[in-house]
Structures are given as structure tokens and as C-alpha cells.
Design a binder for these strands. Structure first.
Lengths: 207, 207
DNA sequence: GTCTATAAGCGGATAGAC
DNA sequence: GTCTATCCGCTTATAGAC
């Protein structure tokens, strides 16, 4: 569902003035609220209140709650994709980008909470973002696996390490640390822990 | 909140006949529903329907929804504690118990979903189980850290590995793999992945 | 673009009958 | 023990005024 284009307002000549700003305001507020409460527990009204319009006013920009979620996820996806496409020059720079992403996440708790809450929620087959997360994880795991395969080809993977396993472990470690980070009041240094893990699996120096 | 005793029915002479059975039925149903939908999205009605009574009938046994959640979490805690207290004879047997727990989890998706959904949900400070999960994680991380410290004292921890980091990584890996396991339609062998991870951090043979 | 009004439904909790 | 009846609040979504 989050793949559909869900925008509503369209200027007569294709240009939209205040609408684009409003939409961005809404997306920011939605991110915050979805992150704090999850999708199902969040209410459109709460999001609308946050920017000073009514629930029905918001409906003009995003006709349904699902459409709003889809837009939020699409925005996040684009942001993250930009980071990784920029440094696609090899396995080492990819892993550096991962650490960079983690660093950035540590500065934006809202995004981490969003991912944490939604990915767990979307585990249910009937969740509106279920397919989205299935595909997202399959994609990430596939690309990460390839990174470790390239590393192995370069002889930079430690003896006995399996690329597929390494990929799953890296992704799992990041997800799991986020829960600890959130529950501990941000007392965990996720970047340092992941860096240490990568050092135990590869011969790279990712300082 | 989940620490409070929340039982309601009490026989005149301290004995409860059908009540105990009913309560167990309710707890089983609640586990299933909380696991599938999370706490906030789950409805007491749905749980009651599942065993053929009304929401108001259920209320007799557990006066509030919170009380029901508390009872579900308490039951899970007791189950798990029993497993670990049985083999408290040292760090190696503790890690074996961890793998055993994982194996058992792989056979009961409901429990995994419950943990996954609730721990993410309880990340919010206003969640009824927030403190419960904070304390639970602090406890588990502390005990796991001690296991790795004992291992280091025995010279069975690999060079440069830090006990605290190892503890966080092990717990995170398990949590993160559970998400992948659920999203992938149970295609991931969590036990094998965790075993491989432990092999890369310790010199133990945990086959 | 945003509002008011309102439909139609589900949420948990309580009172009291049986 | 379990039910019926009922309250009240909150939810999403639609229709139509401005």
C-alpha cells in the first residue's frame, strides 16, 4: 500500500504553493506521532492538532490514514536511499555509510522510534505496512549480503564467516540495539557497538 | 504495574475450582491476541470472544485490561525464569540455556510475536508495561554481562571482546533476528545464527 | 484550504439481573 | 460466573458551507 501515490491536491497548472508546505508540516507531525504511538494507536486528530488544523482539514491533503502512513514511509525511504547511493563505491564505503546512518539515527530519536514501533507492528500479516516491511527487509538483507560477499572475495572477511549470516546479524544487531537504546534512555552507544561487531567479523578498520 | 497481584476471584475457603481453568483460558487467549495486535490495539472483547464469553464476563476475572496484561507478562516471566535457574552452573551452561530458549521460541511464534510487539510498544514512556520492560532488559543485560565476565576470567573470551558489549550484542541479535524471523515467514534459523555469533566471540563449542 | 456538522462504529468500564 | 443493558469517549470518514 505504501507504494501507491497518494497525493491529493494538484494545482491547475501543476504548481502547488502553500500545499507543499502544509504537506511537509503534516508529514513531520505524522512522523512524530506515529513514532511515539505506533500506527494503529496514533490518531489523525492528534497529528492535525499538532499543526493547528482539524482532522478534517488534514483529510484534504491525505484522504485516509493509510495514505498518510504511506507518504511518511516513502519520505524516509528516499532519505535513506540517497545516503547509500552516494557511496556505492564498494563494500567498505557501504559499511561506513551504515555507521553514518546509525550516527544520524542517534541524533533523531523520532525516526528510530518510528522504525522500531512500525517494524514490530507490521509483523502482523494484516498490517497496512506489512508488505512494505517484508520487501524492505528482503532488499536490505540482499544488498548487505552482497557487501559481505564482495568483502570475502577481497579476503577481508574473517575465516569461517558466512555472508548471509553476517548480513542478518548486522541488520539484527542494529534493530536490537535500537530497542535497548530507547529503553535505556539513550545510554547505549550504538555506533561503537556495531563498529566493534564489524571488527570481529571483518579485517576492516572502520574508525 | 505488572508487578501487582491482580487476581480477582477468591473462593471462600481459598480454593478455586473452575475459576483457575477459566483464568488460564483467558491468559492463553490474551497472549495470542496481544501477540498479534500489540497491547493497545488489542481489544478485551476480541479476547473474550475467542473463548466464548462476553467482555463483561472476562471482566469478572481480570477487572481491567492492564491487569490482564500484567498477568500475561508475569506468566511468561515465570516460565523463562524456571529455565535459567535450572542451569545456573556456570557461563557455558547459561549460554546453552539461551540457545535452548531460542529453540523453544522457534516452536512458539505466539510468544515471539508477543515479545517483539510489546517491547517495541513499551518503548513509549506512557505505556503500561514501560517500566516492566526497562527493568527486564536491565536485569537480562546485567546477568548476561556477568556471564561474559566469567568467560573472560576463564580465558574463553576472544581477544579484545568486551563483556558489556558482548551482552548487548547477544541480546540485540536475538531481538533483531526475531523480527526477521517473523517477517520472513519463519525462514531464518535463529539458533544457528546465534550459535555462529557466539563462536565468533568465545572459544566455546556450543554444538 | 479549512471549517462545522454528523454519521457510524468500537473502545473500556460499570450496575445490576439471574 | 456470566449475562444484558448502558454510558461515555474516541475513532475514521463523508457532506457540504465558507
Amino acid at each position: 500500500m505504501p507504494t501507491t501515490d497518494t497525493s491529493r491536491p494538484r494545482g491547475a497548472r501543476g504548481e502547488y504553493a502553500k500545499s507543499a508546505l502544509r504537506r511537509q508540516e503534516i508529514l513531520d507531525a505524522a512522523l512524530t506521532v506515529f513514532a511515539a504511538s505506533g500506527y494503529r494507536n496514533a490518531s489523525v486528530r492528534e497529528i492535525a492538532d499538532r499543526i493547528g488544523i482539524t482532522q478534517q482539514g488534514l483529510t484534504y491533503h491525505f484522504p485516509t490514514k493509510d495514505a498518510l502512513l504511506a507518504a511518511v514511509l516513502r519520505a524516509r525511504g528516499e532519505r535513506d536511499r540517497a545516503l547509500f547511493e552516494a557511496d556505492a563505491q564498494g563494500p567498505e564505503s557501504h559499511l561506513r555509510a551504515v555507521l553514518e546512518l546509525l550516527e544520524r539515527n542517534q541524533a533523531t530519536p523520532g525516526l528510530v522510534e518510528l522504525h522500531c514501533t512500525l517494524s514490530a507492528e507490521a509483523t502482523s500479516a494484516d498490517h497496512p505496512a506489512h508488505e512494505y516491511f517484508q520487501e524492505r527487509y528482503a532488499g536490505i538483507l540482499g544488498r548487505t549480503r552482497q557487501v559481505f560477499e564482495e568483502l570475502r572475495a577481497q579476503g577481508r572477511l574473517r575465516e569461517g564467516a558466512d555472508p548471509g549470516r553476517c548480513a542478518r546479524a548486522l541488520v539484527a544487531l542494529m534493530d536490537g540495539l535500537q530497542v535497548q537504546w530507547l529503553l535505556s534512555g539513550k545510554q547505549v552507544d550504538m555506533v561503537a557497538d556495531v563498529r566493534a561487531h564489524l571488527a570481529s567479523v571483518t579485517t576492516l578498520d572502520l574508525s
